[in-house]
Amino acid sequence: MEITNIFFIIFLSLQIGLIYGLIALGFNLLYSSTRIINITYGDFITLSGYITFWLYSLYNISPFLSLGISSFFLILFTLPFFYILEKFVLSSKNILYIEIWGVIITFGFSIFLQGTMSYLWSAQSRSYAYLDNVIDFFGVSFLLNKFLTTIVAALLIFLLYFLLFKTNIGIMLRGVIQDPELASNLGLNMRKIFLIAFIISSFIASISGVLLSMSFEINPFMGSIYLILAFVIAVVGGIGNPLGSLISGILFGFVDVIISYTIGPSLKFFIIYSLLLLILIYRPWGLMGRGVRYA
């Protein structure tokens, strides 16, 4: 294999893996801190894709500017969403109650959002051409939008790492993830921490939506694909471990690309889901997880 091909494979694996990792991270963070399995997560990604598409198509606003605009709108949208869940679900002390009602309510929201987007913008797939030219980098050619997508994803991951591991907010958030009972007894403001988890999760969904919309087409129902992906990667990486999601995402990216190159893409999903099954049998708590504690 030529050396340029190896560079290309590494780059491609990173590009896919970083986005996957990012999506799973946002999903995992919210679940492990609040115990809410947010079915609407995928639709937040879709909504962000649509905001980007419309801003670019109608007003020629660059998707990179949309990173900010879309995040702002999605966080705004998250607030009422959070208050409803807080009032009816998070107020309970029973984790099973939170998990079950969290799924039911967010599932309802998901159907509502998909229906609204389909009503407003029709179910027809849409797309846009942005920075679609090919650039050469160390003798390997890439589409510029993909290249920049990878860089933005990597930067965001560093930012999240800093936030989670180097700031007080991050320490509190991780405290809640590791031992919610202890965190609560220590007098941490759980409501504030839950709100922060919701905002970070929506922020990640928003950025992912913008980045994905640059390469793939958008339609109101595409969120489900990303939701499943986020779920699988988060489970493999280990629920409760944000770093696990990232590493699992990147691993997923490499396995995905390498299988396509060697065996061929026909068996890709078979192999990936077989690996998932093996991991779930031998390490049900995930590669880097500690398992979920039920109070």
Partner: peptide, 16 residues
């Protein structure tokens, strides 16, 4: 002469 799954996100392996 090669196929790929519908939900594919990358076909560069075949394209190379």
């Amino acid at each position: 002469y090669e196929g790929y799954p519908l939900e594919v996100t990358d076909v560069s392996g075949i394209l190379l």
